[in-house]
């Protein structure tokens, strides 16, 4: 099927016929070298440097001696694994992701299916209205919602005076609301454009067999847009673990958002101490966890699709 999961299908594309000799060497070099140079400079070297920094420890010559950085093996990683604040923030993001990502993608799928159905009037309007929040940067969205949810500014005073949406129990979900608000429309559009590319004769056949809209959505549309849903899910998983701007802004509205609320905030707080070597080790662990999660999600969903 041509619609295999997006990221993986390309990587495993079988090589086409191998040419006898490489042609157009000059053009290939001119086209690829600029990107590759910058990719090495600003992706690969930083990753390598973070890893190298994470292997160093600071050693002092006596209490007042000069601090020198020496190779310490995986000592920083041992500290990361003992660091409660870091794992608390990780756990918080797992909880966040398990709830927020399915809710957001579920809504996005629902809206995309409705846009694609014959049930709606004014599709163009809804499509744009739902997408507009994506144009609002996370910082600005968080400032808006922070104001809307804080008890003394909110237009919904009856709600915010009875429930403390910015208190320790609920602030995580208030932040989830901000992220959902921004990204539902974006994910909706990705799924919707994937729906548009399904040839309509598939529906004709189903309709002749007596299938209703719901049945068509469930048995034809959703399976065919699976790759789009998987792609949005992978990007959402990555985004969740990277969360930084929204909670950082919410610190101004809620004392419940600590400086180690998310993994990235913990990295930043640790780097500001300054304990850059430990922060580097945290960055590496965070990147690895993100990579493993998104990659195993891809593998898992692919295997499920085949069986």
């Amino acid at each position: 099927m041509s619609a295999a999961p997006a990221l993986a299908s390309v990587a495993s594309t079988p090589p086409r016929r191998t040419p006898l000799k490489v042609q157009h060497k000059g053009a290939i070099a001119a086209l690829t070298i600029p990107f590759c140079t910058l990719f090495v400079l600003f992706y690969l070297i930083p990753i390598g440097y973070a890893f190298w920094q994470s292997l160093l420890v600071v050693e002092r010559d006596g209490t007042y001696g000069e601090a020198t950085k020496v190779f310490g093996g995986f000592q920083q990683y041992a500290l990361v694994f003992q660091n409660e604040a870091f794992w608390d923030s990780m756990g918080r993001m797992f909880l966040f992701g398990i709830v927020q990502v399915p809710v957001m993608l579920g809504l996005a799928l629902l809206f995309a299916l409705l846009l694609d159905s014959s049930l709606l009037k004014g599709r163009r309007f809804f499509r744009l209205a739902f997408f507009v929040p994506y144009a609002v940067p996370g910082v600005i969205a968080a400032i808006m919602w922070g104001n809307l949810l804080s008890p003394n500014l909110s237009p919904f005073t009856s709600l915010t005076s009875s429930v403390d949406l910015l208190g320790p129990e609920l602030v995580l979900w208030s932040i989830a609301n901000v992220v959902t608000w921004v990204f539902v429309g974006y994910n909706m559009l990705i799924i919707y454009s994937s729906l548009l590319s399904i040839p309509s004769d598939l529906y004709e056949a189903a309709r002749l067999d007596g299938a209703g809209q719901l049945r068509i959505a469930w048995s034809i549309k959703i399976p065919l847009v699976r790759p789009a849903i998987i792609m949005t899910a992978v990007f959402s998983i990555i985004g969740t673990l990277q969360l930084l701007a929204e909670p950082q802004v919410f610190q101004s509205f809620s004392s419940a958002v600590t400086s180690t609320f998310t993994p990235n905030m913990t990295v930043y707080a640790t780097a500001s101490v300054p304990n850059t070597n430990l922060a580097a080790a945290m960055s590496v662990v965070l990147a690895l966890v993100t990579f493993v999660l998104s990659f195993s999600f891809l593998k898992f969903t692919q295997r499920k699709g085949i069986s």
Partner: peptide, 13 residues
């Protein structure tokens, strides 16, 4: 798949 924020700190260093 590499989170951009994981690069921020090493880029700073």
């Amino acid at each position: 798949l590499v989170p951009a924020t994981a690069l921020a700190l090493p880029l700073f260093l």
